[in-house]
């Protein structure tokens, strides 16, 4: 689906974490991101959406959107998910 270039990583997360079938996972992510289903695979729209929501993009230079574990904190909040490494990070840092 395009990974972090679009929304493929988010849709895949919902399949893996919640057993959501493809159409359900797409709708869930689209609703949470407040975009249309068509936008989910549009790299033009999704770059702006991902930057606005601070959930990582393919551009990881200085001044980029949150990356890696930072982005996953935001993704967990946005998708209402518990992400294992985020929970581990919180525990280790006392957040």
């Amino acid at each position: 689906m395009g990974g972090v270039r679009t929304s493929g990583d988010l849709v895949a997360r919902m399949q893996l974490a919640k057993n959501m079938r493809l159409d359900d996972a797409k709708k869930y992510v689209a609703d949470k991101l407040k975009v249309s289903l068509r936008d989910l695979t549009d790299e033009v729209t999704m770059r702006e959406v991902r930057e606005d929501l601070d959930i990582s993009s393919i551009f990881m230079g200085y001044g980029s959107a949150s990356r890696g574990i930072e982005a996953k904190f935001n993704i967990a909040r946005l998708l209402d998910l518990e992400i294992n490494c985020v929970e581990k990070f919180k525990k280790k840092t006392g957040i």
């Binding site: 972090v4 974490a17 990582s56 990356r67 890696g68 574990i69 490494c85």
Partner: peptide
Amino acid sequence: VAEALLTTTPALL
């Protein structure tokens, strides 16, 4: 795995 998790975004199996 722990090192990769710090710098990557998609689900990592």
